[in-house]
Design a binder for these strands. Sequence first.
DNA 1: CTTTCTGCAAAAGATTTGCAGTTCT
DNA 2: AGAACTGCAAATCTTTTGCAGAAAG
Lengths: 137, 137
Amino acid sequence: MLSMLRAAGLRVTAPRRAVVWALAFGPSHSTAMQLLERASAYHPALGRASVYRTLEVLSRLGAVRPWAGVHGEPEFVRVLEGHHHLMCSYCGELEEMPHCGEECPAEELTDGSRIHGHLVELIGVCASCAQKEETCT
Amino acid sequence: MLSMLRAAGLRVTAPRRAVVWALAFGPSHSTAMQLLERASAYHPALGRASVYRTLEVLSRLGAVRPWAGVHGEPEFVRVLEGHHHLMCSYCGELEEMPHCGEECPAEELTDGSRIHGHLVELIGVCASCAQKEETCT
DNA sequence: CTTTCTGCAAAAGATTTGCAGTTCT
DNA sequence: AGAACTGCAAATCTTTTGCAGAAAG
């Protein structure tokens, strides 16, 4: 993501490096505050505002997307590599799904556009809940 | 969505009907405040809190999903019918994509789970921007 | 009739903004 | 040197919560 900053003519500074580091080497989605906390280990002087400002920049570049977490908490998701979840409306858990390769069906839906990332969210009942229910019936 | 409330043993009240009406007959995604405004036409006494509470209930039932809008503003998306967007990271526009049928490839990614809705977001450069760029080169 | 839901207003948070100082290029 | 970026703290705004009263089943 640092190279994306450079390519866009933006500066690569310590605070930005810290946030990118926290994004790249942490979980695929986190809240702004979690990122602040993790990135602080890398650059202790980091302030809240810079985290938000960096996330805004990265969103504009398409490296990250704001996303509403399991209970609606605002989070940011690394999006360059593609991302699939299953939100189970029965147990309320978010199940991360295996990564998709180059030929992810989600990216086939397009016309002349150039896709470089995606976020797929399925809403339904997860396999383990579905099985539990059958057992009950 | 009213029947989903009944099926879950929850009450169907005027405020809830108003919010469901605003969701069902309005755009596929809106902010809580926009819903409040529209639903007020239907039930003028409606208060903010009830909108949030109803949206919370509908999210738990899987009829709606919180979602981060174009610039990250929290919105709610009708999700039962499936939903596809393309976020163009060049022009920043959100392009709504044609609705998918029953055999939407997005829903094929599953194992034993039962899917009843989905939200697909592609991040990339939209067709018209992609074309513009070619012309420039 | 009981339990759930509602509106109000206050409280709690999260995100944004202005500004003086710092740091890339 | 000049423009871009940062941290701080204050301001703004959205969402949540407590509670007394109303209404659905």
